[in-house]
Design a protein around this nucleic acid. Structure first.
Length: 279
DNA sequence: GTCTATGTTTGCGG
DNA sequence: TCCGCAAACATAGA
């Protein structure tokens, strides 16, 4: 569910909810594996007393910078969500972790499918160092993208989903970016002409910024703080629109499975690569 | 009831 | 390097 725009929205909403400046007072775990590191014992020793000094995002990771130099990192994976509620509120279903705050509220992590993870580390790089560049950074240029694509034989779809290639794109925004750039997901990285690379760079930034502007894409399981939904699902051109007309040419949107993930595309606007590009 | 799909990531075998 | 597959899980829908 949550990709870069959804996590960015969550970070902004947590900010708006007043999380910065709050101090953690306690931690409880309702599903053991939700905490990746350290141990629960160590978390309960280290987290209380630390104040939230900043909230940021790297790729799909939400990062809370804490006053003792530690970093609390949260990855929502498929179904994770965060809420800030009065400590007296009933505990909702699928709540996996409860972090108590000094104003009598709780930061609660809910996660239906239990894939989400919490990390408390002294150095955020321990978690984020393997990530590729941020596609929406102002210093990420089309030339950077070209350099990263050069000499790669992988298909665009799995490559763009690879977080060590670019950080933050997931299934929705990859399909949307490829449609905007008129590129078939099976094209190989090193087959792109300069103009196509430029178009892909532009398209990725467009769909991500638009996703942020629309406060994320909410199908069924993505919610920001307090259950707030985004509206970007209304702005999608092809994702989950199989059979609907392509907004550009009217051809029915096609669905393929590539790299075990569903892929949506317009067969007219995104022509199949030449056979030499298909293994 | 059964089978399929789901917005993510990681680890394994080839 | 790269690919395919399975697993970590729960739920909705056909």
């Amino acid at each position: 569910m949550p990709e870069l725009p959804e996590v960015e929205t969550l970070a902004r909403d947590l900010h708006r909810a007043g999380l910065v400046g709050r101090t953690f007072t306690d931690a409880a775990l309702l599903w053991e594996r939700t905490l990746d590191r350290p141990s629960l014992t160590e978390l309960r020793a280290r987290l209380p007393g630390q104040r939230v000094e900043g909230i940021r995002r790297r790729g799909k990771y939400l990062i809370l910078d804490l006053s003792d130099g530690d970093t609390l990192i949260i990855h929502l994976r498929m179904t994770g969500r965060l809420d800030i509620v009065p400590a007296t509120d009933a505990v909702d279903p699928h709540t996996r972790a409860i972090l108590a705050l000094d104003d009598g509220s709780h930061l609660r992590f809910r996660d239906q499918r239990k894939f989400g993870r919490l990390y408390l580390v002294a150095d955020a790089a321990e978690i984020t160092e393997k990530l590729g560049p941020e596609p929406i950074d102002s210093d990420f240029t089309a030339a950077d993208l070209r350099a990263r694509l050069a000499g790669r034989s992988r298909q665009l779809k799995p490559l763009l989903l690879d977080q060590s290639f670019l950080a933050g794109l997931g299934n929705i925004y990859v399909d949307e970016a490829l449609w905007h750039a008129n590129l078939h997901p099976l094209r190989t990285a090193d087959s792109l002409a300069d103009a196509e690379i430029e178009a892909l760079w532009e398209a990725a930034r467009l769909v991500l910024w638009r996703g942020i502007g629309n406060e994320g894409t909410s199908f069924s399981t993505y919610f920001s703080v307090g259950g707030k939904k985004g509206s970007n699902q209304e702005a999608l051109a092809v994702f989950r629109r199989t059979g609907e007309p392509c907004p550009r040419c009217g051809t029915p949107v096609q669905r393929l499975v590539i790299a075990q993930r569903s892929s949506h595309l317009c067969p007219t606007c995104q022509p199949l690569p030449p056979p030499s590009d298909i293994p």
